[in-house]
């Protein structure tokens, strides 16, 4: 179990973060840019100091600023491998040398062979990093981190600089590696689909505060506040008597969860006219204006032909959130 408690003073807000990650599981830190996600990883890795830090890994205190004397294990003794958006492959070394860099005895093992094969890097071992594409560089960065047998893996948006296909492939490879060899992982992202794919648990962080923690489904289908709902992709927030909502409550609409058609057992059935139509990530995002003037977004296949002004019946999942 990795436990951490961090308090860090920032210019406009304080970072206050606590979490407990079971051994071998992936915990995702999700939030918008500047929310403090990377700062958490930097403190865990030992790159940054916080006003208060307590990091315990499997009953071993890695850092404790409240202890007398203070405990602070150096970065290189923590065994926390760190992979970030930029692969940071050492440019003067070959791929093989890069991968072996973190292997303290410098010996090439059969485990390394398995990793190289899994990540399809066999033909690149004698190449220099500049000869590889961005996707392959990131594969090498991950293999290099895994090769050192880390106690904890810290992933700071490792896929954000990759194109769609490279991202999909690399995530698939990681999922396969994790199935064989679970590693306690903290994974920073601002893509909910990446979190869904890789993480068992997710923490929503905003302006340095952990707003909600749970499984990805829990957070996605039952956001604890309007802010969490906004962060995980809810786009429309309806209020008022129309839906029989109590005071201070909002019906939150996630375009991907709105059903076109009449399904009374799945939520509130209503009608609206198509007022806007946009293409988005290979699908179309329709905006409907309901009878009371409220608007809701609906994600639909691009093969559905819906003209502006057409009357559509939709079922809105009954997700009510209070403004806390």
């Amino acid at each position: 179990m990795l436990e951490c408690d961090i308090l860090m003073h920032r210019k406009n807000w304080n970072l206050s973060f606590q979490c407990a990650v079971p051994s071998g599981s992936v915990f995702c830190l999700y939030g918008s840019s500047g929310a403090g996600k990377s700062s958490v990883l930097n403190v865990l890795a030992g790159f940054e100091k916080a006003a208060r830090t307590r990091i315990v890994l499997s009953h071993e205190v890695v850092e404790d600023t409240s202890a007398v004397p203070k405990v602070r294990m150096p970065v290189w003794q923590r065994g926390f491998a760190y992979v970030e958006q930029t692969p940071r492959l050492f440019p003067h070394m070959t791929i093989r040398e890069n991968i072996l860099y973190g292997v303290l005895d410098g010996k090439w093992s059969s485990e390394l062979d398995d990793l190289i094969t899994a990540f399809q890097l066999q033909t690149y071992l004698s190449a220099k990093p500049r000869q590889l594409s961005g996707g392959f560089k990131q594969r090498v960065a991950l293999v290099r981190a895994l090769a050192m047998n880390p106690r904890v893996l810290l992933l700071d948006e490792p896929f954000s600089a990759l194109d769609w296909r490279a991202r999909e492939e690399l995530q698939e490879l990681i999922v396969r590696v994790y199935q064989k060899r679970p590693i306690t992982t903290l994974f920073v992202t601002h893509s909910i689909s990446e979190a869904q794919r890789l993480a068992q648990r997710i923490g929503i962080i905003d302006q340095g505060k952990l707003l909600q923690e749970g499984t990805v489904s829990e957070v996605l289908f039952a956001p604890a506040s309007l802010r969490v709902a906004q962060l995980v992709g809810y786009t429309h927030f309806l209020q008022g008597d129309y839906f029989g909502l109590p005071q201070g409550a909002f019906l939150v609409i996630h375009p991907d969860q709105v059903l076109v058609g009449k399904y009374p057992e799945r939520g509130l059935v209503t009608t609206g006219r198509v007022s806007q139509q946009r293409l988005r990530e290979g699908q179309q995002r329709i905006e409907l204006t309901l009878d009371n003037g409220d608007r809701v977004g609906v994600t639909m296949s691009i093969f559905e032909e819906l003209a502006i002004g057409k009357l559509v019946t939709v079922t809105l999942p009954n997700r009510v959130v209070y403004n806390v």
């Binding site: 290189w76 973190g102 290099r144 981190a145």
Partner: peptide, 14 residues
């Protein structure tokens, strides 16, 4: 790039 040095530390090197 300091990032290279940080990467090296995180890979267990002094």
């Amino acid at each position: 790039d300091v990032g290279f040095e940080r990467t090296s530390f995180s890979l267990g090197r002094t």
